[in-house]
Each structure stands twice: as C-alpha cells, then as structure tokens.
Amino acid sequence: MRQPPHAAVEVQGLSKSYGDHAVLRSVDLRVEQGGVLALLGPNGAGKTTTVRVLTTLTDPDAGSVRVAGYDVVTERRRAQRAISLTGQFAAVDETQTGAENLWTTARLAGLTRAAARRRAAELLERFALTDAGGRLVRTYSGGMRRRLDLAAGLVGEPRVLFLDEPTTGLDPRSRRQLWEVVRELAAAGTAVLLTTQYLEEADQLADRVAVLNGGRIAAEGTPEELKASAGQTVLEVTATDAAAFARLEARTPHPVAHRSPETLALSFPTRGDARHLRTLLDELDPGRDEITGFSVRRATLDDVFMALTGAPATETNGTTGTTDAKEPSHV
C-alpha cells in the first residue's frame, strides 16, 4: 500500500562510508508525525552515524534524507530549525541554575527576555523541576539533569526530536520518568527517533522498531510483529554440563534464539503448543539425560535482537552504548 507523503522523517537509500569502511548501506527509515521509532543495533551498527546524518551533523554519501519535510543537505538550516537532538550525556551548564540554563537557551533561540523567562518557567513546570529551578545544576541528580537537558532541547518546540541513548546511566525511577515525558511529547504530535540499548525501553515507548546490523536494516515493524517473528513463545533449556551443551547445540536442526555457555542455557522459538514443546524436547535430548531443566516464556525483543545480530543488546565487545562518536545535544 502506498504510504502518505510528508512523514516527519523520510530516509531512502542512505549510505555513508569513512574511508574504506561502509558504516551505512542503503538504509530506509520512516517516522510519522507523532510516532516513536526505536533504532536498535549492536556497537558499531551505525545508529549514531544515522542520527548524525539526520540531524545535519554529517552529510550522507548517497540517498535521500528529509526531516520535517526538508532535505538535510540542500535545506540544512530549515531542517535544523525544526529538530532537536539530545545525546547520551546531558549538555547543561553546571555553573548556572536550571532556570538560567533554559533562559539562556531560549535567548539563543531568538526569544525576547520576557518570552525566554516565560518559556523557561513553562518547561521547568512541565518537567517537574520548578522547585529546583533556582538551584545550581551541579546539585542535580542524574535524572534531573537528563530532564533539564531534554527541556532545553524543547525550547524551540521542535517537530522532530532525536534521542541518542537518553537514559544511559539513569536509575530505573529516572528512566521511567523520562519515558513518561517521551510519551507526552509523542501524544502532542512530536515525532521521536530514539536509539537505545535497552530493549524494554523500545518495547515500552516505540510504535515501530528498526534493528540496524552491519549498516543495514535487518528488520522493522511494531514490537509485537518483531516478537512474533521470533516465535510466540521461547523454550529455554539448561544442559547438564559443558559437553552436553555443545552436543545439544550441534545436534539441533532448530534455530537458536539465544545461547549462554556460562549458564549452559539454550533458547529456541516455538509455536507454544504442548505437542510442539514435547517434540522439540525429544529431538534435543532423545536420551533424556542431557537437559536438567527447561522453562517456557513469551518472546521478547531481546530474542529478536539476538536472532538478528547474534549478540545481546547490552553486551557487545563487553561494553554498553555505541562505538560511533558522540555529539553534544541541541542542534
């Protein structure tokens, strides 16, 4: 079916290389106004490079990239006025108060002194920072700094908001507070493109998820569609020892959704019915002496991520986050 024109983000055939290394290879993406797209991928997959191109920080080598209806190369300034970028690390001035940070940002955006004061007060209230507005930012918690950073990015009321791993390092409560803010923004019509290493975050916030692997989009769809592709349910078995683990992995003709040599666990997508589960267990362990236990659970985005990239979402090369260079926020 033909998609309507004028999406908030329209990317077709985006390619980008650094020297001989192709970082992005003909990437297609689309985010509707008021939609939330979560862009997932292991370290070095190209997530941050994609964000850099979409926010005009880096030119594409090939492809068409339009944000808020503007070409990011030929209409760079117009695109910049319609977007905001909040990076992994809060870009706020610790020597100023929260209110001063927002007032300064508003003045830089062209607001008058009076309008800047009003906008700062509105945003402090919106992000539950009014009581802390007069305090120096150096006294803020990590969650408060992230909320202030996001507030600063919304001074100009952007049509498209880019969030590059915005909850990295936050405690669970602060992370959920930021989720609520993102939901409110999307409900008000702001388009959001979110990169994250937290699969629960993508599941909670995104109406569509794209998995980037090796510079290409490996899969895209709603969270439920992607989870269904990994099987409605997953069978996880635990081997008796390392030798049995190796034999189970070598013996199975079935796709392995997840493997953990450390815990001797293997996971397999299933249809979820009892007949299929019994058949699968008999095929895996015909002698019934190499599996010590099993469990059945619903498929998650982590299963999708593993199946598409071969690595856990938060465990690539022993680190979290991306290996692409980070940029400061607020384009």
Rank of each mutant, 00 (worst) to 15 (best):
L266Y: 13
T270L: 12
A299Q: 08
P253R: 15
A186D: 02
V51T: 11
R77K: 09
V296N: 10
E100K: 05
D149P: 01
S267K: 11
L185A: 11
G215D: 01
V51N: 09
L37I: 07
L194E: 13
I291R: 11
A274S: 14
V155C: 08
V51S: 12
T104H: 12
A218N: 09
T300Q: 10
G169M: 05
T112K: 09
N43K: 08
H21T: 14
G272S: 06
A307M: 15
A128E: 13
T233S: 15
L14W: 08
T314L: 09
P223R: 07
E125S: 15
R30H: 12
L108K: 01
M144I: 07
E165Q: 04
R146C: 04
A79S: 14
H6C: 10
A307Y: 00
V36M: 12
V11A: 13
E315W: 00
P4I: 00
K326L: 15
L102I: 11
Q96Y: 10
D282S: 14
T240F: 00
R77F: 03
V51D: 07
G98K: 04
L284K: 14
G272W: 03
D131T: 13
N101V: 02
P223N: 04
A188M: 04
P158D: 08
D303N: 13
A121K: 06
T320W: 01
D289E: 12
A128F: 01
G293F: 12
E283W: 04
L29W: 05
T300H: 10
H21Q: 11
L37V: 07
L178P: 05
D273H: 12
Q177A: 14
G169I: 03
V234H: 12
R278I: 02
N101C: 04
D20V: 07
L199C: 05
T233Y: 12
N101F: 05
G214C: 04
L193W: 00
E283A: 15
R288P: 01
A132N: 01
A114R: 15
V137Y: 08
Q33F: 15
E100M: 05
T300P: 03
A152I: 01
F89K: 10
N213I: 00
V137G: 08
L205A: 06
T48G: 12
L54V: 08
G87Q: 01
T316N: 09
V36A: 12
E184H: 11
Q3W: 03
D289Y: 03
D20I: 00
A210M: 07
G231W: 00
V67D: 06
T240L: 06
P60T: 08
D203V: 09
L226I: 08
L185V: 07
D203P: 08
V331F: 14
G143L: 01
D28N: 14
G169D: 02
A307P: 00
S26N: 10
D20C: 09
T279H: 11
E122I: 02
E283D: 15
G87R: 03
G287P: 00
R2S: 14
G69I: 01
T167R: 03
L108V: 03
A62Q: 15
E236S: 15
